[in-house]
Computed example of a mutant assay.
Amino acid sequence: MSYNMVIAGAGGIAQAVGLLLSEWSNVPIRIFIGNRRLEKAEMVAKWIGEGTTDPLVAQAFCLSDRGLTKEMEEIFEQGDVLLDCLPGSLAPKMAGYAKKYGLHYVNLTEYVAETNEIMALAKNAETGFVLQSGLAPGYIDILAHYLYQEFCRKYHVDKVDKLQFKVGALTDHAVAPHYYGFTWSPVGVATEYMKDAEAVRDFKKVPLKSLSERARIIIDGRTYEEDLTSGGAADLPDALAGKVRHLDYKTLRYPGHYAWVQQQIEGLANGDKAIGTLQEKMETEIPHMEQDQIVLYAAVEGKDSHDVLRRSEVSKLIRPQKVGKHRLRAIQATTAAPMVQAAFMLLESDRKGVVLQSQIDPKPFLNGSFIAAVYGEIP
Rank of each mutant, 00 (worst) to 15 (best):
M1L: 09
M5E: 11
V17Q: 09
L21V: 10
S22G: 15
W24R: 11
I29S: 04
I31D: 10
F32A: 13
F32M: 04
A41N: 07
A45F: 02
W47D: 13
W47L: 15
G49Q: 00
T52H: 11
D54G: 08
L56H: 08
F61D: 12
F61W: 13
D65R: 14
L68K: 14
L68V: 07
L68H: 07
K70H: 04
E77M: 07
G79R: 02
G88N: 07
G88R: 03
Y101I: 05
L103S: 08
H104N: 15
N107R: 03
T109H: 12
Y111A: 13
T115H: 05
T115M: 10
M119L: 10
K123A: 09
N124M: 12
A125W: 06
E126P: 01
T127W: 01
F129Q: 10
L131A: 02
Q132K: 08
I140V: 13
I142Y: 02
L143F: 04
Q149W: 05
R153M: 01
Y155L: 02
D158I: 01
K159C: 00
K159M: 01
K162R: 15
V167R: 12
A169M: 14
D172C: 04
A174S: 15
G181V: 01
W184P: 01
P186Y: 03
G188A: 13
D196M: 09
D196F: 03
A197E: 01
K204R: 02
V206H: 03
P207F: 13
E213F: 03
E213Q: 12
R216M: 13
I217R: 09
R222S: 08
T223S: 15
Y224Q: 06
D227C: 11
L236K: 08
L236T: 01
G242V: 07
K243D: 00
V244M: 06
H246A: 13
D248S: 14
L252Q: 11
L268G: 11
G271I: 03
D272N: 14
G276Q: 11
P287V: 05
V295F: 02
V300C: 09
E301Y: 00
G302V: 09
G302H: 13
V308Q: 15
L309K: 13
R310I: 11
R311F: 00
R311T: 15
V314Q: 10
P320F: 01
P320Y: 03
Q321F: 03
K322C: 07
R327W: 11
R329N: 12
A330D: 08
Q332R: 04
T334W: 09
T335Q: 07
D350C: 07
R351I: 03
K352I: 05
L356E: 14
S358Q: 00
Q359L: 02
I360N: 03
K363P: 02
G368K: 11
A373S: 15
G376P: 08
